[in-house]
Design a binder for these strands. Structure first.
Lengths: 247, 247
DNA sequence: CTCCGCCGTTGATCCAGATCAACGCCTGGA
DNA sequence: TCCAGGCGTTGATCTGGATCAACGGCGGAG
């Protein structure tokens, strides 16, 4: 593991984000390579980034906004399989075709690297590969947590789980006082929430109303949520206490 | 990528399985390390291998049998999040505690490596790390496929999907004639199937009966399945044709 | 300003799968 | 040999969430 101060070296500072996959382990030489590869692109809400099966010749980090990874069946049933938030990594080194659809959920800016040179970097710089392995293992754990949600949780627990995740993320970003209330914006529509949770938009709406009625959350408009008591929300989510602690 | 003939070198041949994570990239020196680390252990059906949260100081490959990775909620609801079949890798380099319960579904033999020296091997041998990254990315894709199943498929589609996966695996193992019928044993109980699919055992049983009634499968006893027409089964599973082709 | 389309909410009804219950078969132990 | 317990099946009933339907608010285009 490199010392933390190495993470900020040289031209990584030019980039509006810290690429989790590469920057934490960058040293001078690799950065030269990265500089030549980088390109930014912004997508408008709803715009497809790639379709499943398409050529997929770049990897990328999310700089701002939210992108959604999803699968659709022939009859239109859709399941979101990943929500990509700023600093998340998108792409599949070693595979030329996308396995899933990726769509901009909000306005999204990606910092993209061409796949081939990125793969070369991966081969030549084991630290980047190790970091990517760690990130992938974390994602796999998260996907497995999500399988419990999809397979066994009730609609109310599903909504509560999603809100708890967003609240945790907000709290960690803004250094909230533990025990204080947490407020954040739902960046996504009811439809995206439904696709993520394996529900319909009507059920999402009804359960949000029910959680508001029961005082678990406060809804200001339809997109702004305040969580007066995080532990209460976490209890609604039906999670074991482990791994969902705020601090 | 190493040439295929390197995969069989030296003492890897002593091992009853080819460790997907390491053997395909072994060269002389690393094998010395591996030899000192290996230990075998057999678990009886139902026996826990690790509990979520436990110290987890080894990684392993499945030699024979089936192990199940699962999560349980306080009230007993359970969701299986992975089925570990021979040659699958178990463990999480870089983490000292298990994230999920792992249980022997049948009699299972593992070939285990202590975690610490394995991590050292990983650091010193980038090829092993790359192989592990590839495997992890494949697992992540599989987990995401499973999310579609759990979130959006009907009970009949869920059962058909599981049978189609098992049939595909059987066909690839036994070099079946494409288009011919495929026969295999369900290694697992109805309960394990239910836990995997996010259903109850009664629903699993009823849907199997329905698929038999409709001629999609032939059930001999309760554990032996014959699939007369794979394409028919795949159609019941509701999958896109891509990625579920037999050949 | 008005109109239109999208987003979200709410109500009425339906149904797939859960739940509750009973039973048959097989296996292993006394 | 018989019994007990685990596994699987089937039937009856219930219910959580899907479906079908209507409506209100808001924001952008004209």
């Amino acid at each position: 593991m490199l010392a933390p101060d190495l993470a900020r070296k040289a031209s990584c500072e030019d980039c509006p984000i810290r690429h989790r996959a590469v920057c934490a382990h960058c040293e001078g030489d690799e950065l030269q390579v990265l500089e030549g590869m980088k390109s930014y692109r912004t997508y408008t809400p709803g715009e497809p980034i790639v379709w499943a099966g398409d050529d997929f010749n770049f990897v990328a980090s999310v700089v701002t906004g939210v992108a959604a990874m999803s699968q659709t069946m022939e009859d239109g049933r859709r399941q979101m399989v990943g929500l990509l938030l700023p600093s998340d990594f998108l792409g599949r080194p070693g595979r030329a075709h996308a396995a899933f659809d990726v769509t901009a959920a909000t306005s999204v800016t990606l910092c993209r690297f061409e796949r081939r040179p990125f793969e070369a970097l991966l081969r030549e710089t084991p630290a980047v590969g190790q970091r990517l392995l760690e990130m992938t293992l974390d994602e796999l754990d998260a996907a497995r947590e999500w399988m419990l949600l999809l397979g066994r949780k009730t609609a109310r627990e599903k909504i509560s789980s999603l809100l708890a995740i967003l609240a945790r993320r907000e709290a960690s970003l803004s250094q909230q006082i533990p025990g204080g209330e947490i407020a954040f914006d739902l960046q996504i529509t009811r439809e995206a929430m439904a696709d993520y949770l394996g529900l319909t938009i009507e059920t999402v709406s009804r359960q949000l109303t029910a959680l508001r009625r029961d005082g678990v959350i406060v809804l200001t408009g339809s997109r702004h949520v305040t969580v007066p008591d995080y532990d209460n929300l976490a209890a609604e989510a039906g999670d074991d206490a482990d791994g969902t602690q705020l601090t």
